[in-house]
């Protein structure tokens, strides 16, 4: 392959670019098509995981159905991972991302967020025998984390440089690595860790450090304000009716508590 052919490739790409670009009509499209595509996790119990029939279930899935029902449209669930959630919105493969999505400044540059709908906090977990009292104690240890997740970004910020952060593609793999002993500690959602520890008593793992209290928001593509406002109305109504608390109670065993708007 020579330079000329590369240049040709570049030209073809450039020629195709004007095709890109979207009008801000997600809400109208959804209502016209009577269907909404919502990205959900399948690797994050109890927010999203699969049962013996491989059908997704969990808090995020219930939330997706709630929103679909209030909009009066059918819901198509699209399983995504932490690393590629944002790309699904940017490329309009999904109209909403309800997938344990926390809000931060970087993400706000590329997508928009609705009000929060459920609580979530991330922490570091490890075997009881591993002495970890502060983030500095993690020095020289291997910590597994799901790439692109809030805990990944948070851990990279607070951990000392000598921590060996091992990033995996989705939470399934991160958990598998921790259970297999391939990493000494895991940084993940507290509810996920609770399930893992309950399922694997041999790990003798325990809660070590709080990383971040970061409630979940619903992601919408940048500038889709009409859809965002409509979803916010639905969230506000669901909160007032106590539905958010019921969801939280059912899956997390505690009420939703005080969520940011």
């Amino acid at each position: 392959m020579n330079r000329r052919t590369l240049a040709k490739l570049g030209f073809v790409l450039a020629a195709l670019m004007p095709l890109a670009g979207h009008a801000q009509t997600a809400l109208e499209d959804v209502l016209a098509r009577k269907q909404i595509v919502i990205a959900i996790p399948t690797d994050f119990p109890p927010y999203g995981f699969v049962g013996t029939d491989l059908k997704p279930q969990g808090l995020d899935i219930d939330m997706a159905h709630l929103i679909g029902a209030r909009l009066g449209v059918a819901v198509e669930l699209l399983p995504v991972t932490s690393a590629n959630r944002i790309a699904y919105l940017q490329t309009r493969k999904a109209q909403l991302v309800i997938s344990t999505l926390g809000k931060n400044a970087e993400r706000e540059k590329v997508i928009d967020f609705t009000a929060a709908y459920s609580p979530f906090f991330q922490a570091v977990f490890a075997a009881r025998s591993l002495p970890v009292k502060a983030f500095s104690d993690l020095a020289g240890k291997t910590v597994g984390v799901t790439r692109g997740a809030m805990e990944d970004i948070e851990l990279a910020r607070v951990a000392p440089p000598s921590v060996d952060i091992r990033r995996f593609e989705d939470n399934n793999v991160t958990v598998a690595a921790f259970v297999a002993g391939q990493v000494q500690a895991i940084a993940t959602g507290a509810s996920v860790a609770a399930t893992v520890m309950q399922r694997n008593p041999q790990l003798n793992a325990e809660y070590k450090l709080l990383l971040k209290d970061s409630p979940n928001f619903i992601g919408v593509a940048k500038g889709e304000d009409r859809l965002r406002v409509r979803v916010n109305e639905i969230i506000a109504a669901a909160r007032a009716a106590g539905e958010l608390d019921r969801l939280s109670q059912r899956w997390l065993g505690r009420p939703a508590g005080d969520l940011p708007q």
């Binding site: 399948t42 690797d43 119990p45 995981f49 699969v50 049962g51 013996t52 491989l54 699209l78 399983p79 995504v80 991972t81 590629n84 593609e169 989705d170 939470n171 399934n172 793999v173 958990v175 598998a176 259970v179 297999a180 893992v196 399922r199 694997n200």
Partner: peptide, 22 residues
């Protein structure tokens, strides 16, 4: 499987997470 298409390998990863028996 890595782009979310649920076939044999992806089902394997999903079940691993539900069973913790990799």
């Amino acid at each position: 499987s890595v782009i979310g298409f649920i076939e044999l390998a992806k089902a394997g990863t999903m079940i691993t997470n539900a069973t913790f028996r990799p």
